[in-house]
């Protein structure tokens, strides 16, 4: 593997790794995962292929990142390489933003256009008269067909100023703690760094568990489910994907924390830390959008 100790490389040159097995293993892993998912969704042979895939994927990440960390620790990466990593991370986060944009777009389209049109508002008077008589458009809604929800087709939503508000505070705080940690890293206060980094991912995991709890209530009591019309669809897809990202972010924070315990990162040279911090701020911002447009308004 590329763990051939490249310590002797002169870092005046842009480091070009040679052969790495991780990408192809990653592809195989993803393929197995998807094969498993397909076979599960199609009721073929269950999701068994998922397991080796997931394991392989985990191994791939572990191997790939330890290779990179190892190289980084041996000072193989010069400023230019570091800059490549930063740019790469920024553009990756941009792509994530666009992914969420698709779902926010769906939310706004449904609320502002589709639902009113179904109710015969605006240019679509005929809809109300011809297809969906006595449907009063509004939000939240599970549509003129009252799709999903409780047995009587109704459902209620999660009040914004309960758990969601608390979760907002949690995430905002975690954004603060990670910034403090970053500052501590730059000023060489290792202990502050360790403590606040730990706080950050602990807050992250707390957020996730509260979300899980909230989902439980939504499903059991409120009749708010993934299948509860357009509201349920947008609600769970948006918060769900966000929750997934928080989980990933929190795991990455944990990894970074373990690395700080190992004494990695210097006040000047800590791309991995910054990358994770950026990612964390990104999930933070997405949540604000969710809190305002999904829960609150």
């Amino acid at each position: 593997m590329s763990t051939t100790h490249p310590a002797h490389v002169d870092s005046s040159k842009y480091y070009i790794p040679h052969g790495s097995p991780w990408p192809i293993l990653g592809s195989v892993a993803l393929f197995c995962i998807m094969a498993g998912a397909v076979s599960y969704l199609n009721d073929w042979a269950g999701a068994w292929a998922f397991i080796p895939g997931a394991l392989l994927l985990f191994g791939m990440f572990f191997g790939w990142f330890s290779t990179v960390i190892d190289e980084s620790q041996h000072g193989v990466y010069n400023q230019e390489v570091d800059r490549s990593f930063r740019m790469g991370m920024i553009w990756f986060i941009f792509s994530e933003v666009m992914f969420f944009a698709a779902f926010f777009g769906a939310l706004f389209y449904a609320r502002r256009l589709a639902v009113p049109w179904l109710g015969g508002e605006g240019t679509k008077v005929i809809n109300g008269l011809l297809l969906w008589r006595n449907y009063a458009p509004g939000w939240p809604t599970n549509g003129p067909g009252h799709v999903g929800g409780l047995s009587n087709g109704t459902f209620s939503v999660i009040p914004p100023f309960g758990l969601p508000a608390i979760n907002t505070l949690i995430l905002l705080t975690s954004g603060l703690t990670v910034t403090i940690a970053h500052h501590a890293l730059r000023t060489g206060k290792r202990n502050v760094l360790k403590i606040f980094l730990a706080l950050t991912f602990l807050l992250g995991f707390t957020f996730v568990s509260l979300q899980v709890h909230e989902y439980g209530e939504a499903y059991r009591e409120l009749g708010l489910r993934l299948s509860t019309g357009i509201y349920g669809s947008t609600f769970f897809m948006l918060t769900g994907f966000h929750g997934l990202h928080v989980t990933i972010g929190a795991i990455m924070l944990t990894v970074i924390w373990l690395r700080t315990l190992r004494g990695h990162f210097t006040p000047t040279h800590h791309f991995a830390f910054e990358a994770v911090a950026w990612y964390w701020h990104f999930v933070d911002v997405v949540w604000l959008g969710l809190f305002i447009f999904v829960y609150w308004m």
Partner: peptide, 26 residues
């Protein structure tokens, strides 16, 4: 695009209503 096809997937397998008028989608 990834988002769009994901919505197709959930509409088909998990009963979401993104593209189903009865559920308030379009």
């Amino acid at each position: 695009l990834a988002g769009a096809v994901t919505m197709l997937l959930t509409d088909h397998f998990f009963g979401t209503s993104f593209f189903n008028a009865a559920g308030g989608g379009d």
